[in-house]
């Protein structure tokens, strides 16, 4: 997407980033659970400028049949960007990048979902990126996890995700589009907060071993903040008129 902008100031002398955030601040995240009537479970997330819709179907019959597993259910994820989600029209066919993201999101969700209760079935997760602004894979993973919980798929934990990275020689939390294009490193992290396990870790760029450790710590902080918002979204749908807890 878009070329480098030569004259963008990623970090000013006061430690304020190009979009007015501090270095350890995430963008504004809002999640709404249960937005689609026809899906078993769904969620809509706004992660800064990212707008992503997630729909979960199933457990249901597997087609083609040869993909089914007699021991367990299978998880299938499709991450897709709408043609209008970016500046220049994106061809709607699945690109190399979308296939990769579908795969990493699937593998990030698999340790959490317990599909062994549903042999010979599939759970389909559809992620539609309506508007992209850097860090869509993390935002999509957050929405997918809420949608799976909304569908009632048994899960060991919710999966929350947030990126950290490096721009203007400083470690930053939640890399946005400009920082991704002109920055030095981008590290998306998927995390199961109650189990304390990382399920997604990618790194694009160069970090020293010391920076790498700090970057993970920073990213996990972001994940925990997102986790609170995920919980709030589910509480709102299921317990809003309740008086307990």
């Amino acid at each position: 997407m878009g070329g480098r902008e030569a004259n963008v100031v990623l970090l000013d002398e006061n430690g304020i980033r190009s979009d007015g955030r501090k270095v350890n601040e995430t963008r504004k995240v809002t999640i709404k659970a249960g937005v689609l009537k026809n899906a078993s479970g769904s969620a809509y997330i706004e992660f800064g400028g990212n707008k992503i819709l997630a729909g979960v179907f199933g457990p249901r019959d597997v087609h083609p049949k040869h993909m089914s597993n007699p021991d367990t259910g299978i998880l299938r994820v499709r991450y897709h960007m709408e043609p209008f989600s970016v500046d220049e029209r994106k061809k709607p066919a699945p690109s190399r990048r979308e296939i990769e993201i579908s795969k990493v999101i699937k593998e990030a969700l698999e340790p959490a979902v317990m599909l062994e209760k549903f042999p010979r079935t599939a759970v389909d997760v559809y992620l539609e990126v309506l508007q992209a602004d850097g860090g869509t894979r993390c935002a999509a993973l957050d929405a997918a996890s809420v949608a799976l919980a909304d569908a009632g798929i048994p899960m060991r934990d919710l999966v929350c995700a947030c990126a950290s990275g490096k721009a203007a020689d400083t470690l930053i939390l939640d890399v946005n589009n400009e920082e991704d294009q002109a920055g030095q490193a981008d590290m998306p992290i998927g995390y199961m907060p109650n189990l304390g396990k990382i399920t997604l870790l990618q790194l694009d760029g160069v970090l020293t071993p010391d920076e790498y450790k700090k970057c993970i710590e920073l990213g996990l902080e972001g994940c925990k903040q997102v986790y609170e918002i995920q919980k709030k979204a589910l509480r709102e749908k299921y317990f809003s008129s309740g008086d307990k807890d």
């Binding site: 959490a112 919980a149 048994p154 899960m155 060991r156 934990d157 919710l158 199961m192 907060p193 109650n194 189990l195 919980k231 589910l234 509480r235 299921y238 317990f239 309740g242 307990k244 807890d245």
Partner: peptide, 11 residues
């Protein structure tokens, strides 16, 4: 002994 609202992953 009280029933509490829980989400996946809650202790």
């Amino acid at each position: 002994s009280k029933k509490r609202h829980v989400l996946p992953g809650d202790f």
